[in-house]
């Protein structure tokens, strides 16, 4: 087996594992912001690994450039969308879990 095929396989498997982790995270984590964090993993690391894994397969051709563009686009847009979501949630009154716990602790101390 060629070395590029091995690298591609590694990237794809690792990327898919991260994707599954992100999915489980969205399902299992307790509140909006922690779920968003799980989403972020899928958006950035998983997409990055899968796309770069595919890039090893295309060699040097037009497809590689296209994949690179998709990668750059995702690297810009996915953090932005996560940020916008988090900010929108904060603005509409969603409080992070840690803050909730802190206010609860303060209340108990009183």
């Amino acid at each position: 087996m060629e070395i590029t095929a091995i690298i591609t396989a590694l990237c794809l498997v690792l990327g898919s594992l991260l994707g599954i982790t992100g999915g489980i995270g969205v399902y299992r984590l307790p509140d909006f912001f922690t779920r968003l964090h799980a989403c972020g993993i899928t958006d950035s690391a998983c997409a990055f690994l899968i796309l770069s894994g595919l890039m090893f397969q295309t060699g040097t051709s037009l497809e590689t450039v296209k994949l690179l563009f998709i990668l750059i686009f995702l690297l810009i847009t996915s953090p932005t969308s996560t940020h916008a979501l988090a900010k929108a949630a904060l603005n509409s009154g969603e409080t992070p879990l840690m803050e909730q716990q802190q206010t609860q602790q303060k209340r108990e101390e009183r």
């Binding site: 686009f73 810009i76 847009t77 932005t80 916008a84």
Partner: peptide, 16 residues
């Protein structure tokens, strides 16, 4: 107005 990151990224990406 409050979403500065969103506005900057939009301006950056629109031409593309």
């Amino acid at each position: 107005k409050g979403y500065l990151v969103l506005r900057v990224v939009t301006k950056l990406l629109l031409p593309f």
